[in-house]
Structure formats: C-alpha cells, structure tokens
Design a protein around this nucleic acid. Structure first.
Lengths: 174, 174
DNA sequence: TATTGTTATACTCTATAACTATA
DNA sequence: TATAGTTATAGAGTATAACAATA
C-alpha cells in the first residue's frame, strides 16, 4: 500500500492496534478520563482539583504554612499564592500570622470552607460510587490493590498526585 | 485546634486522608504517573506521546488525511499541522497530495519513520513489562479487565486518549 | 457553499528568578 | 546567610477564528 487512498465513506475513529491490550495505555487513558470527570465534579463547587486537595490538606493539617502545603503536593511555593488567594477571596481559607515565625502564614479553614469541603467530598464520593458501580465488590478490591502495586513504579510519595502538579482540564462547552 | 502551630521539625509530606482508599484518586494518580514514565520513554526517541500515537495511526492507516488523524485522537486539525511538520522535518512522515482530493495531504511513513516506530514500540513494551512485573499474571489480566470496565465511565471512543486530546466529542459534521 | 490545511492571535498554565520581611 | 511569601516575566500548550485553495 503505497498510494493515497480515496476516502469513500465516513471512516469513523481510526484505531491504534494493541492499545486496548496495554495496561500502560489503559491506565493512562482511564486515569486521564477519571481526572476529567473529577475536575468536572469539582467545578460544580467552583473548585479546581488542586484547590480541593489543598482544602483537604489544610483541613487535616491546620496551621501549616503555604510552603509546607505546596511541598506536599509537589508544586512551587510561588504557585500556591494564587491558589490560596482565590480560596481566601471566597472566604474558605484564612491566612493568619504564625506568632512563632512571622514570615509564615498559618492556614485555617473557615466555617464556609469546612462546609464546602464536606459538599465537595460528597461529590467525590459520588464519583467513587459511580466507578465502583461498574465493578464487582471483589473486582474493586482487586483493582485498588493492583493500583497500589503499580504506584510503586515511581518513588512519588503517597500523598502526591503527579497530574495535579501540572494542568487538569476543566470542561468548557463550545 | 485553632492556633497556629510551632513547626518544630521537618514535617515530611503531609497526607490527605482517604486518598489511598479511593479508586478514583489512585486511578488518576497512577495514570498520570504512568503517562509521565511513558513520556520520558518516548523522549529518548525524540518523540512526545502524541507523535508516537500519530506515528502508529499513520502506520495503521496509511494515506489518511491530517483531519482524519486529528479527529481520531480528538485534537483540532490546526494543532495537527505542527505535529506533522515536526515529524516531516525529521523525515519520519511524508505529506503527499491525494489525487482524488487535492485539498488533502495523504500521510505516509518513511523507512526511517517505520524504524523509529518499531524502536519506540520496543520502549513502550519495556514499560509495559515493567508494570506487569509488579503484578501477578492473573493480577495483570484482572487489572486490564477492570480498566476496560471503568473506561465505560465516559463515552470516549476506544482509540482516543483524553489526556492527549482536550476535546472529547467530535461534532457531527452537519 | 463546504472542506482541507494553514496561519494568527489570545488565553491559560507553568517555571524561574528576583524581591521583602523576617529569622 | 537563609527562609516564607510574593511578584514579574517569559515560555509552552491550547482554543478559536479567519484565510486560500479546492471541492
């Protein structure tokens, strides 16, 4: 086959051979798809995934500094500024001066922040249930187990999500 | 706990509770990690993942147009231009005029393109084996099976990788 | 009038380096 | 001297619309 072909009918999506049999490809593809669904789910609360993560980290570690939070999710501290700025402008997070080191901002959730955290967690739980609904109970357990094993492929600490250090897509009609 | 805390020692990475038990989070995290490893693997051949995908699509569908390829991976046709430009400048891909429709460029791999495709596929296979090495044979089979089930969470056509394409749904051309 | 490939432009996300105020 | 937070800037990636050639 060395000649241009006449396109006679609608070709449909061209497929790549072997992709469906590759764990690497399917993990990457399904992972990106789930991340998209999650981003769409969070956007209903006016959050991007990274903000949800930060909200939960502050919730579990109140009083920590911006640098500590940023290091925990693997982003530069300079990027944390606008993330906290936006959360603070929505009255979800408070910056307080740490009296033990006045360079640091101690981060705390407001009441509204705790409430939004809970609502966003419910959305996350709904997505989780939607996924588990596609699997048997033993299948879900086995999948989670396999994911923990494959997670050993790199030495990223457990709390860090490599994809959140970069960009996550938010759905945008049109 | 309502007071800033004195940071006494290196805190280590702060963790988010429940993340490890969430299939959604782990899928997203491991998927991003695998995608990173794959990108690193492809970069050894001077390719980005999308170029590898395009190389394989042209290989399986020689003579197709740029628009057909771009639609198959869910990217705008305008973005395909620079992708093909680069592949062509490396003498991996040829644009030929399609005599049946002289607006179209029929895409073909060169000999060097087929050789690089094969070498890059070997690298991809190595990553696949590295992942499978972390699992039992039955675990790998079960994981792949679960991934196919979870892939039903959206209606993305099988060949499309949402992470490589921003726009998921191709408009019906009317 | 519609489509293919292309170009131009604006917008978002990111990385990096400086700067300040504290330590 | 070093660190926390901030700002500025430049680069990469992307989406979108418009355009010329062809159908």
């Amino acid at each position: 086959m060395a000649d241009p072909k006449k396109i006679t009918d609608a070709p449909g999506p061209l497929e790549m051979e072997g992709a469906k049999d590759s764990i690497a490809f399917m993990l990457s593809r399904v992972g990106a798809s789930v991340a998209e669904q999650f981003a769409a789910s969070m956007s209903e609360h006016g959050l991007v995934p990274r903000q949800f993560l930060v909200l939960n980290l502050i919730s579990a570690h109140e009083g920590e500094s911006q640098t500590a939070i940023s290091a925990s999710i693997g982003v530069a501290k300079s990027r944390m500024v606008s993330v906290i700025d936006e959360l603070e402008s929505k009255k979800l997070v408070e910056r307080r001066v740490n009296p033990f080191d006045r360079r640091q901002h101690a981060l705390f959730l407001t009441k509204a922040g705790r409430e939004l955290r809970d609502r966003a967690r419910e959305s996350a739980a709904e997505l989780e249930e939607r996924i588990r609904g596609l699997l048997s109970a033993s299948g879900a357990k086995s999948l989670l187990d396999s994911l923990h094993k494959v997670a050993e492929i790199d030495d990223t600490p457990p709390g860090i999500h490599p994809g959140l250090a970069k960009k996550l897509h938010m759905e945008d009609p049109h």
